[in-house]
Simulated scan of single mutants.
Amino acid sequence: MTPIPTGRLFRTDTGSDLVLTRTFRALADDVWASLTEPERTARWFGPWEGEGRPGSTVKVQMVFEEQEPWVDVRIEACDPPQRLSLSMADEAGSWRMELVLSEVDGVTELRLVHHLDTEEGLGEVGPGWEYYLDMLLASRAGKPLPSFDDYYPSQKAHFESLTTAVDL
């Protein structure tokens, strides 16, 4: 498998936004459940525990990462089934992201927006999100999960090139 990177970078007043999209032939409510129900997130990202509501912090196990660590994820905003805003901090730094869903005629687009304070490390971060989003696609379709080796380091150059692109 040779996945093609889809991530795009947009400069903002506060940094940059890395945006990746995926499309599902499913209602937004169903895609939302794949993003928010612990037994479904376990299939492609990792299970979570805690009280899933705005302002709370849940624990998420990163089962597809080395040593399967548990991380604290704060739910900043939750507007089912359109928008989930999250933040977390780990040894790699702090992360702020949004998952935004829009549905038209039974087809739902998911936009993952990773709000970046710096573009440093984008060559590692971007392939990771591509991998996780394709894990979501595969888990929903009942297909075998992809291998991270198909994403990194092969997609690193694509994401590094985004940091040198000039906004028009």
Rank of each mutant, 00 (worst) to 15 (best):
G106L: 05
V100W: 08
P80Q: 07
Y132N: 03
L116C: 02
Y131R: 01
R111P: 07
E160K: 03
V60A: 14
G55E: 14
F159T: 00
S154K: 10
A92Y: 15
R83D: 06
M97K: 05
S154N: 08
S161V: 00
P81V: 03
D117R: 15
S56P: 05
H114G: 05
E130Y: 00
M62Q: 14
D149F: 10
F159N: 00
A138F: 11
Y132W: 08
S87I: 05
E120N: 03
D150K: 00
L112A: 09
H158N: 05
D117C: 02
P47G: 11
W95Q: 08
R111H: 14
S161Y: 00
D150W: 09
R53W: 14
L84T: 02
E119Y: 01
R43Q: 15
P153C: 04
Q155C: 02
A77D: 14
G126W: 01
P47L: 11
V73D: 12
F159Y: 15
H158F: 00
V58F: 10
L101P: 04
Y152Q: 10
G106E: 06
D79C: 13
W129C: 09
R111W: 07
V107S: 11
L110S: 01
L137P: 06
Y131N: 04
G46A: 11
P153D: 04
R111M: 10
P144A: 07
V104S: 15
A157W: 04
F148W: 12
L162F: 08
Y132K: 08
V113T: 12
E124R: 12
G126C: 02
E76C: 09
A141G: 03
S147C: 09
K143P: 06
S85P: 04
L137C: 09
D134V: 04
T163K: 01
R74A: 08
D72C: 13
W70N: 02
G126L: 01
V107T: 15
S161G: 14
K156A: 11
L110N: 04
L86T: 14
P81A: 04
M135I: 02
L122F: 00
E98L: 05
P81I: 07
L86H: 06
I75S: 03
V100N: 09
M88V: 00
G121E: 00
R74C: 08
G142V: 07
V107F: 05
G93A: 08
D150Q: 07
P146R: 03
M62V: 07
P146F: 05
